[in-house]
Amino acid sequence: MTPRIDTTAMDALMVRLFDAIDETNMAWVMAADRALREAFGEALIDLVPSYTTLLVHYDCQRLGHREARTRIFQALDGLQPADTQSGQLHEIPVWYDESVGPELPRVAQRAGIDVESVIARHCSHDYCVFALGFAPGYGFMGLVDEALATPRLQTPRRKVVAGSVGIADRQTAIYPLLSPGGWNILGRTAVPLFEHARRGEPLLCPGDRVRFKAVSRAEFEADGGDTTPLEER
């Protein structure tokens, strides 16, 4: 792992650790995140980790362009991967049902299996949280079972309600708040992701792991879930 550093804006540098998405990247990305936060301290404005990169936005009143580059090289020198067990494991209850997960049949049909098997397979894997983005608390997770990989909808929905659980290709995610979106929606969770995010304490953080658990309509409702069908919103 040899980091490359690209200029990306007046006061932002891109640290590239890898070229392709892989779950094993995360131990390095998380280690680099910690090292860069420590190295920049007060001079750091924002640090945005993603699948293979970290965007370092620094305060150019405190640090020049060359100095910032040097600081990154020093911070990453001799970097060791973080302990992958340090991320939290979250079990997220999901009510999988066609009324709130209208793409269940589409995914099943493409995979050549029944809806029950789609649910079982979506729940059978611990997903890695690769990055937060798109919306506050929206975690990009993967990698989904290859058989379930389904491309985004041709025409994105104007409204996908909060708690909707979807897949796009081999990624899966939960919509934290009502937003437009083109992912294949399989079900809904009552876990209030956005409320966590707006307190600055997102439930899902990069490096965490997520396990979906199928629950009944009654359990979903008992958790405060909204059973209004997706297409009626």
């Binding site: 804006a9 932002a12 945005v48 936005h57 990055a131």
Partner: peptide
């Protein structure tokens, strides 16, 4: 391209 952080003015 793999999604990455976007700075202001990108």
């Amino acid at each position: 391209m793999v999604s990455e952080g976007i700075p202001l003015g990108a």
